[in-house]
C-alpha cells in the first residue's frame, strides 16, 4: 500500500516514542491493515534518520527472525534486518536497565565484524566469510514495542526488528579457525541452563544471515561498510528477563559473554 511521507514520519515517531518511553503500543497493522514489508522498511529507515539527526551513531546491523525456533515463536516465515544504535551497546558483564525497556528477551547469537565492504545482490556465504575479520559471541536483547510481543512481519520490520540492546564479549576469532555450523552454545539464565544449540540453527549457517541482510540492503542500493558489526540472529528461543536476572552465553571455542538486568 502507499503511505504518504507524512504517514511514514508519523508512524516512525509513534514507534520511536514507544521505544524511548518504554511503553508498548498496538501493532501498526491494526491501524493500517494493508501495510507491507516495504512500508515497514520505510518506517524503520525514518526512525534511523531521526536518531542520526540527533547525533546518535549507527554501530551495526542485525538480522532478525533467522532461526526456526524464533520463527516458530513469533509465527513468521521470513527473516528481516534492523540497525543497532550506539546507546544499544552494553559492555560484557555490564548492567541493563530493565525499567528503560518494555518486555526484554535475550537471544544467543554470533556477531560478525567485517574487514571488507559487502554489496548485493548476489552476496553469498563465501563472500561473507572472505570479508569477515572475526566473529565473537553476543547477547542480543530484543524488546518489541508492540503489546505482548504480538506482531506481523511488516510491523516488526517497522519496529527495527525489535532491536534494543546488545552485549559483545568473549573471544574474537577468525572464521577460518571455526566450523560455524556446528559451533555449540549454552544460554544460562540465573545460573541454570536455559537453551542449547549450534550455529546451523541460523538459516543453516550464520554467514547466510549476513549475506541475506546485504541482499536486502541492495534493494535500497546500500551495502555494509568495512568494520561493520552484524548480529546474525538468535540460535535458540529467547529468554524473558526481569530486574535481578543474570544471563550468560557460553560458546564453543569463543568463551562467554554475560550481563545483568538491574
Amino acid at each position: 500500500m502507499t503511505l504518504s511521507p507524512e504517514q511514514t514520519a508519523e508512524l516512525a515517531e509513534y514507534l520511536e516514542n514507544a521505544e524511548l518511553n518504554a511503553k508498548a503500543v498496538p501493532q501498526i497493522s491494526l491501524r493500517h491493515p494493508g501495510i507491507t514489508e516495504a512500508n515497514g522498511y520505510a518506517i524503520q529507515h525514518e526512525i534511523r534518520r531521526r536518531k542520526t539527526a540527533r547525533g546518535t551513531q549507527i554501530v551495526g546491523m542485525k538480522a532478525g527472525l533467522t532461526s526456526r525456533a524464533k520463527m516458530r515463536q513469533v509465527g513468521v516465515e521470513n527473516p528481516s534486518y534492523g540497525f543497532l544504535a550506539d546507546y544499544f551497546a552494553v559492555p560484557d558483564g555490564g548492567e541493563i536497565e530493565r525499567a528503560r525497556l518494555i518486555h526484554p528477551r535475550v537471544e544467543p547469537e554470533i556477531a560478525f565484524v567485517l574487514k571488507k565492504p559487502l554489496r548485493g545482490p548476489g552476496c553469498h556465504i563465501g563472500a561473507v566469510l572472505a570479508a569477515t575479520e572475526f566473529v565473537m559471541p553476543a547477547l542480543e536483547i530484543i524488546d518489541s514495542r508492540y503489546e505482548n510481543f504480538k506482531f506481523d512481519f511488516a510491523s516488526v520490520v517497522a519496529d527495527n526488528s525489535s532491536s534494543s540492546r546488545f552485549v559483545l564479549g568473549g573471544r574474537a576469532r577468525p572464521v577460518e579457525e571455526l566450523d560455524l555450523r556446528t559451533l555449540g552454545m549454552v544460554l544460562e539464565h540465573n545460573g541454570k541452563p536455559f537453551s542449547f544449540g549450534a550455529g546451523a540453527a541460523v538459516l543453516g549457517h550464520p554467514a547466510l544471515a549476513v549475506a541475506l541482510v546485504v541482499n536486502l540492503l541492495a534493494r535500497r542500493d546500500e551495502g555494509l561498510e568495512a568494520g561493520t558489526m552484524i548480529l546474525t540472529g538468535g540460535i535458540t528461543e529467547a529468554v524473558a528477563c526481569q530486574a535481578g536476572d543474570h544471563v550468560c552465553l557460553r560458546m564453543q571455542d569463543l568463551g562467554s559473554v554475560s550481563a545483568r538486568f538491574v
Binding site: 556446528t182 555449540g184 544449540g197 550455529g199 546451523a200
Partner: peptide
C-alpha cells in the same frame, strides 16, 4: 570441550534440531 561442542541434526537435508553437549 564436551559441554560446549555443538550438535546439528539433519533429516533428509533439513536442519531439524541443534543442541550442545551440556544438554
Amino acid at each position: 570441550d564436551l559441554a560446549l561442542c555443538g550438535m546439528v541434526l539433519e533429516k533428509n537435508g533439513d536442519v531439524v534440531a541443534t543442541g550442545a553437549g551440556a544438554a
